[in-house]
Design a protein around this nucleic acid. Structure first.
Lengths: 220, 220
DNA sequence: TGTACATCAGTGAACGCGCGTTCACTGATGTAC
DNA sequence: TGTACATCAGTGAACGCGCGTTCACTGATGTAC
């Protein structure tokens, strides 16, 4: 029974949304096309009206998940409050047990990282964009684009992902908490250090980008 | 055709060895029991004389891979040379493109982390031991077991794993190199800082860590 | 605006395939005497 | 030490199952006149 163009577009969106949650929650290999369609109360056949293959869905689901995750988290990171409050809020969310225990609603990067390493090019390209968004997010709380600040952002992204990935893979909840706390404290401390030095130096050597302006922190 | 006890034990060891390489190289889900046995020129049936299930093999393969990886890397980290040389050598190996491009022969933790998050208890327990070994390895180059040093080791392990996991998941080799270099530089710098304070403090004022020192800002 | 027809979103069964595991079998090894 | 037999490591085919994808079909939607 044919559907209207709007209904079809809505179905497509719902497929991607369901896939995005399922892949993050259970991994790419553990979720079948039938699982995704079943989530919408639909059968497998219809899937191929919308996508060429499972891989096409995987790539799109990663893209949508990372865009949503960035939007949600940027609300924490770039409302106009002091830099230290923003970084604290961001890390209190990203490195929380809540985030650890609910991968389906969290950042796709730690949820899928080591699995994506063995996927096809389209998936890795979507994932690369997701990594870049995570680095951009770090930039929201560690502004300044000198070479040194770029390194600091990359380190922040790597630490956050490493902590979450290890916290989720261990059977020892105490170790998981220790990992999340250690990285949270370390990043807050090193942000405080560079925040201090940032405020101290008044002259900016001809290269800097202005710090992101105040924005109403809205939730997606 | 029955084999001698020694031959059988040797077969078992070869199964685990092959599995350990294949799982790290291609992921757990992407490697079948038949793949592993095929690596030894054997057929599937014999596998179940040695293991109750694939999961039992996965757990043992992770254990053996992490023990070997620790042994190999500890050679770099704990020969009696100066602390800074040891940490530099360790990071130059762990965060190298060689390690990134050859997961089959490297540390199982970044190779399997996000996949293990969805595996059974036995696998997660073996993986927890692997994480602890990685933290122990960090302890070889960041000695001192105060609460603060424990946090520093956890952070080092998380950063290393995060960097490698992201470097392997991106389709952009330049980004991969940037990630590895940034984390390498950051860890060397923070080790240098605490190495300095270690030597400086006869009495410890129980509070601050010294700010990282000036270093030649090299681009990756 | 009304009608005839082409389009195509979604159904549900089927396709070939590879998976983890089981099983009857083989024959060398290990053991009891 | 020699012999008879039980054990069991490894074979190769088969098991049921779930996977990604295809396909003939249905009937409401969209379009051409």
């Amino acid at each position: 029974m044919r559907r209207s163009r709007e209904e079809a577009a809505e179905t497509r969106r719902r497929i991607v949304g369901a896939a995005s949650k399922l892949f993050r929650g259970r991994g790419i290999g553990a979720v079948s096309v039938a699982d995704v369609m079943g989530e919408l109360g639909m059968t497998v056949g219809g899937f191929y009206r919308h996508f060429d293959s499972k891989e096409a869905l995987v790539a799109e689901a990663i893209d949508v998940a990372s865009a949503e995750s960035l939007a949600r988290t940027r609300a924490l990171a770039s409302s106009g409050r002091p830099a230290m409050d923003r970084i604290t809020d961001l890390l209190n969310f990203y490195l929380s047990t809540g985030h650890k225990d609910n991968p389906a609603f969290g950042c796709p990067v730690p949820a899928l990282a080591s699995e994506v390493a063995h996927e096809g090019l389209a998936t890795k390209e979507a994932f690369t964009l997701a990594i870049e968004r995570l680095i951009e997010l770090a930039g929201c709380v560690l502004p300044d684009d000198s070479a040194k600040a770029r390194e600091q952002r990359l380190r922040m992204a790597a630490s956050m992902v490493g902590a979450l990935v290890l916290a989720r893979a261990t059977s020892n909840p105490a170790l998981a908490d220790e990992l999340l706390s250690a990285v949270r404290h370390g990043l807050i401390e090193s942000a405080r250090a560079s925040d201090g030095s940032e405020q101290r130096k008044a002259t900016s050597p001809a290269s800097r980008r202005p710090r992101p302006r105040k924005r109403p922190g809205k939730k997606p």
